[in-house]
């Protein structure tokens, strides 16, 4: 238990700049406990990587941040609090729709809408009531530039999004997410279905996005976590085993489970 305390002490130093504060969270799917007693802070304008074997609860925690788990019948936070910008996101005055506008999400499988490239990116802004064509054009262009896709698609904005390659589709999904101008971007294994070249491009993009957004990324790829993240959290069997600076976690892990996992002894 004393390790947890050390972690908490470290968190306290920069509590003022925390974007997300997770305290004592338990999470259940029906009657089975998926997350147990999770507490940590995500600092703003940093990239935080969640690593851990399949089924350890890292995606579940990620989906708690924008209340995506509301859609799953029987899934709920049973204990603890999650504060984002000082607001408890499960409190009744928080509208999940509004929350999701401020916390964007990129999924494991690229999932563009069955529409044109332009319409995909303009979808979010349209929802918030942007109707002016000129304004929309501007948002679409800056979002596509932000996701480093503009030069590749600027001449075919009206074509179907399914004409793009897998990597381009994933970057389009990122453009769609940042077009809403969120504060935090959640990424659920964004590169797991991409080849190394496309992965490199997306990683480059993630580092670029760090300037403006707080990014939480779930990944199975240890090298990727090492390359892109500032902080790394290791989950195992629904528990947060270790959380800290990425360089320290990978070079000098405190816990033996972490060491076993990152050296490939299990998982």
């Amino acid at each position: 238990m004393h390790e947890m305390v050390t972690t908490a002490d470290r968190i306290d130093e920069r509590v003022s700049q925390a974007a997300v504060e997770v305290r004592d969270v338990d999470f259940c799917y029906g009657s089975s406990l998926a997350l147990e007693d999770i507490s940590f802070d995500i600092p703003s304008s940093q990239i935080v990587a969640f690593i851990g074997p399949s089924g350890c609860g890292k995606s579940t925690l990620l989906r708690c941040f924008n209340r995506m788990n509301d859609l799953v019948p029987g899934a709920r936070v049973t204990r603890g609090t999650i504060h984002i910008d000082g607001v408890e996101i499960h409190s009744p005055e928080v509208d999940p729709v509004e929350l999701r506008r401020r916390i964007g999400m990129v999924f494991q499988k690229s999932n563009p809408f069955p529409r044109s490239i332009y319409e995909n990116v303009a979808y979010g802004p349209r929802l918030t009531g942007v109707k002016d064509k000129g304004e929309l054009d501007g948002i679409v262009e800056s979002a596509l530039r932000g996701s480093a896709l503009w030069d590749e698609v600027k001449d075919r904005l009206e074509e179907s999004a399914f004409g793009l390659s897998g990597g381009q589709q994933q970057r389009l999904c990122i453009a769609r997410t940042i077009a809403v101008k969120p504060e935090i971007v959640l990424m659920d294994e964004p590169c797991s279905a991409l080849d190394p070249v496309a992965t490199a491009k997306v990683e480059e993009l993630i580092l670029e996005l760090k300037k403006n957004y707080t990014i939480v990324i779930v990944t199975h790829n240890m090298q990727q976590a090492r390359r892109v993240s500032d902080q790394t959290a290791f989950f195992y069997l629904g528990k947060l085993i270790e959380y800290g600076e990425t360089s320290r976690i990978f070079s000098n892990p405190e816990r033996v489970e972490t060491e076993d996992y990152i050296t490939g002894r299990f998982g």
């Binding site: 995506m68 999701r100 499988k109 979808y123 809403v180």
Partner: peptide
């Protein structure tokens, strides 16, 4: 596909 629905919701729909 479920992913398409989730994407729409994640955009704030």
């Amino acid at each position: 596909p479920r992913g398409v629905r989730e994407a729409a919701l994640a955009c704030g729909a």
